[in-house]
Design a protein around this nucleic acid. Structure first.
Length: 425
RNA sequence: GUGGGCGUAGCUCAGUUGGCAGAGCGCCAGGUUGUGGUCCUGGAUGUCGUGGGUUCAAGUCCCAUCGCUCACCCCA
């Protein structure tokens, strides 16, 4: 055992299970790519102030969960806790919103970092796939991004993902609601931290999961009763579009999300297989975010889905139990060379097979036949190609079907062709 | 940041009132000096998380510490 371990709160994806993480990234991004979303890659770290202003000074993420450090130039740098702020920063920096038609549609995939105590489904390093659509305020766009996520989950075979939907109002109607909610919350029996939250970000108190708090929230004023006409109409249109596509969703007037930038549409994808965690993904509209980080008005909507949590959800549903094993490093042909001369020839054979599109591997490390054959067996290959002095002299190799045990001599010159035929490649 | 559970072989774990550290699987070798998977025979592997304490004697009891894990808070 090495004396080093993965840093606290992190974990490694190892084969074959790691294939599931790859499959999730692929399945979640494919619908976005089909819908005209372009791939964006931004730095893993940004100026600390970007997150402080973009994510929100009052959020837990900013107040206690950021990986912040000073670089050698004296700048305050933070490992990204989410990717929307960095994506929007890149859009503004490069003027993507001025360069072509709106909305600017982007998708991304990458690592995020939050300094938290780990538990099932929650780690200090985690991966997300996300989409952002910027520069248009259109209920159809909100509905579009939701559809993209649902199509991604469906492609993975997930059936237990539930969509929770809400609206948080806009800068016209939210202040009045916020005040009404604050007044209500101040009358409750709450602990000190929560009372502080009432003053900073009262909406998030609605998200409290503790029973003693929940019970007191029974009669809390709901945002849906305080919406302006425009927000009400907008939300109804989003709901109608989703319903029109046969999407099942649950209206959850208490769904508020943990980041400050959300306006109007918010949504969360929840699943029961994640331990105490429930969200596999979430997002919403963030019409004020651009201005918060010093940009022009630029409405946007998007989501981020947790790759690790999605894998957990799949495992909870019994999906993908063996595709990982099927795909991970599995080859079709395994070379067993006997002796130095054979090893050189085998190296060329294996290279040729790979170039011809045949997944192939060979025994390394000068193992004896027995050990090399054991390697062939463990590789999962269908065929072993055995090459010794006698075969070399005859200009042929022994081709062994590892399932049946049947073995025939094949001329070296025709080996690639023969194998491609037998494997239907 | 707070609380519970757990740290013994590569893995999963057992280990009695404190008395020689074990099993299964895996691994290695041989049975087969050019043949895997099955089978048979044999073999190796430990800082019992770490540091201290009690004791003739500690994997076992006590203290501290680190790590893992689950949960709270919060979130993907």
């Amino acid at each position: 055992m090495s004396s080093f371990q993965a840093p606290k709160g992190t974990f490694d994806w190892l084969p074959p299970r790691s294939e599931r993480a790859l499959a999730v990234r692929e399945a979640l991004s494919a619908p976005a790519r089909r819908a005209g979303y372009g791939y964006i890659e931004t730095p893993t770290f940004e100026d600390t102030a970007l997150f402080a202003r973009g994510v929100g000074e009052s959020t837990d993420i900013v107040t206690k969960e950021m990986y912040t450090f000073e670089d050698k130039g004296g700048r305050s740098i933070t490992l990204r806790p989410e990717m929307t702020a960095g994506t929007l920063r890149a859009v503004l920096q490069h003027g993507l919103h001025n360069a072509g038609q709106l909305p600017v549609k982007l998708w991304y995939s990458g690592s995020n970092f939050r300094y938290e105590r780990a538990q099932k489904g929650r780690y200090r390093h985690f991966s997300q796939v996300g989409v952002e659509a910027l520069g248009a305020e259109d209920p159809a766009l909100d509905a579009e991004v939701i559809m993209l996520a649902l199509d991604g989950y469906a492609a993975l075979g997930l059936t237990g993902v539930e969509l929770l939907l809400n609206t948080l109002g806009c800068k016209e109607c939210r202040p009045a609601y916020r005040a009404a909610l604050q007044e209500f919350l101040r009358g409750l029996d709450l602990d000190e931290a929560t009372r502080a939250r009432v003053e900073l970000n009262p909406l998030r108190v609605l998200d409290d999961k503790r029973p003693e708090v929940r019970a007191q929230l029974e009669n809390a004023p709901l945002v849906t009763d305080h919406l302006c006409e425009a927000c009400k109409a907008y939300h109804e249109e989003v709901r109608a579009l989703l319903s029109g596509e046969g999407v099942a969703y649950t209206d959850d007037p208490r769904l508020v999300r943990g980041l400050d930038y959300y306006t109007r549409t918010t949504f969360e994808f929840v699943h029961g297989g994640l331990g105490a965690q429930s969200a596999v993904g979430g997002g919403g509209r963030y019409d004020g975010l651009s201005e918060m980080i010093g940009g022009p008005p630029l409405p946007g909507v998007g989501w981020a889905i947790g790759v690790d949590r999605t894998v957990l959800a799949m495992e909870a549903e019994g999906l993908a139990e063996d595709d990982g094993e099927r795909a991970a490093g599995r080859v079709s042909v395994y070379g067993v060379p006997l002796g130095e001369d054979a090893r050189r020839v085998m190296f060329g054979l294996v290279t040729g097979l790979r170039r011809a599109g045949v997944p192939a591997d060979m025994a390394f490390g000068g193992r004896g036949v027995k050990g090399a054959m054991k390697g062939a067996d463990r590789s999962g290959a269908r065929f072993a190609v055995i090459l010794g002095e006698r075969d070399l002299a005859a200009g042929e190799a022994q081709l062994k079907d590892l399932a049946s045990g049947e073995q025939t001599a094949v001329p070296l010159a025709g080996l690639v062709t023969t194998l491609k035929e037998k494997l239907s490649i």
